[in-house]
Design a protein around this nucleic acid. Structure first.
Lengths: 159, 159
DNA sequence: GGTGAAAGCACCGAGTT
DNA sequence: AACTCGGTGCTTTCACC
């Protein structure tokens, strides 16, 4: 897991692409006063180094009818295998991310659902997994995403 | 927040772009046996409708030296303003997302940090916010992301 | 590691069915 | 709505710095 050396130019390229992956390389080149070929080569290198894993669309799940977010803490039975339960959890598509955690819960996951009723069904699925002792749900009343760019700037300051 | 009508073709387009936003429209057109112009028009419509909010890079934060993830539950003092505290929390760049929640905690957030020491500093920042009574931290030992595509498929089955 | 030019493609709007 | 088509502009490579 060696750290990869990124210079100021790489940061600026990532900065632009993180906001819009379809920004033409020619535009980036103009802004940074380098050639489009250079942008191309640098992006390719960052992809090869695994810094850039991929690109994805940001969709409005509310508009798709999926406005409900909940976090679910999972308590396991003493004898149960965390890995096994984690695999089962990841088979539920409405669970977007799951973490094995220290602290109160054994596993902790985020659920994206249509509404309360739908969420209930998903949580029942979680409860029914073999080895799960019980769950504890926190419903999100308001989500507030922080700008990815802000995190990047902070990271770059220190690299 | 009206639901937008997406047909099968729209789903397939999103399916491809969610994996790689730079997939040429001509490639998508070939796969779906439609013209590239149609792909273009449909993507544009989904952008205008606000279904597609934007596009972003997926970076390997571990490779950037930020392997530490924790979830922090925040308890507020009875008199404190949730909105005010939420704003303060969002000023910390290493907090990637914050939720107002029902249940145990008042606010619940995700922290991305370099290591334990760094996380400690961030959590101290949270603790120091006016109106915060105390916090409770859960450290992620293992993160397991679910495929975005899987969620989309499930959503599309029901639209 | 960067450039600039050139060839190959993709984008995207206009006009058509 | 979707198609075709053409102008414009983007990507990507390569010889040269």
């Amino acid at each position: 897991m060696a750290k990869f050396r990124l210079d100021e130019t790489d940061h600026q390229i990532l900065d632009i692409l993180i906001d819009n992956t379809r920004t033409p390389f020619t535009d980036i080149a103009k802004k940074l006063n380098i050639s489009a070929g250079t942008v191309h080569v640098r992006v390719k290198k960052m992809e090869e180094a695994g810094i850039i894993i991929g690109s994805s669309l940001t969709l409005d799940y509310k508009k798709l009818g999926y406005a409900f977010i909940a976090y679910v803490g999972v308590f396991l039975q003493k004898t149960s295998q965390t890995k096994f339960v984690l695999e089962r959890i990841n088979q539920i598509p409405f669970v977007t991310v799951a973490h094995v955690t220290t602290g109160k819960f054994n596993i902790f996951c985020k659920v994206r659902a249509k509404n309360t009723e739908h969420a209930k069904q998903i949580i029942f699925l979680l409860d029914d997994i073999e080895g799960v002792y019980r769950t504890e749900t926190m419903i999100s009343l308001e989500e507030s995403l922080n700008d990815k760019k802000r995190l990047m700037h902070s990271i770059f300051k220190e690299l």
